[in-house]
Simulated scan of single mutants.
Amino acid sequence: MPFAAITYDIKAGYEKEISEIFGNFRRVGSPVVKGDDGEEAARILATAVFIREDTMVRVIEYEGDLDTIARHMATQPGVKEVEAKLAPYLTRPRDTDTVEGFVATFRRSLLTCMAQMSVRA
């Protein structure tokens, strides 16, 4: 399964506050992401958030089309809530109020995957 990682430029020293934001995250009811045709287009298998000093990275393990996942995430209430709560802690604002802005920000924040390994069958 592929992984994607997106970065956030944050103010250093707010690890506790940011941890609380993610600790109260409202998860989606299903890992299934549907495409425009209403059929399953992707799955979000796992997520994790890492932080050090002024950098935060969100890792997403997924199946399917990453753009479809980004569009799906843009409409999720929990994701919108996290993005709004993170705003005061960002050193670079993120345009995530619209689906188009969210997807553009997601793409701009995406790290290049250099290597990926898994021992799962």
Rank of each mutant, 00 (worst) to 15 (best):
M1K: 13
T7G: 10
K11E: 10
Y14P: 00
K16I: 01
I18N: 00
S19V: 06
S19E: 04
S19W: 00
E20L: 09
F22P: 00
R26A: 10
V28E: 12
S30M: 06
S30Q: 08
P31T: 02
P31A: 03
P31M: 06
V32W: 13
V32P: 11
V33W: 05
G35S: 02
D37V: 14
G38W: 12
G38P: 05
E40W: 13
E40L: 09
A42N: 06
R43C: 05
R43D: 05
A48Y: 03
V49L: 06
F50K: 09
I51L: 02
I51Q: 04
E53Q: 15
D54Q: 08
T55L: 13
V57M: 10
I60K: 03
E61Y: 09
E61S: 07
E61K: 07
G64Q: 10
D65K: 06
L66P: 03
L66N: 06
D67Y: 04
T68Q: 11
H72W: 09
H72F: 10
M73A: 11
M73G: 06
A74Y: 05
Q76I: 12
G78L: 07
E81V: 02
V82S: 07
V82C: 07
E83D: 15
A84C: 00
L86P: 01
Y89D: 00
L90R: 04
L90G: 02
R92I: 05
P93W: 02
P93Y: 00
R94W: 13
D95I: 01
D95F: 03
D95P: 01
D95G: 01
D95S: 03
D97I: 00
D97E: 14
D97R: 14
V103G: 08
V103P: 10
A104L: 11
A104H: 04
A104Q: 11
L110H: 01
T112I: 15
C113P: 04
M114W: 14
Q116K: 08
M117P: 07
M117Q: 11
V119R: 14
V119C: 10
R120S: 08
R120E: 08
A121D: 15
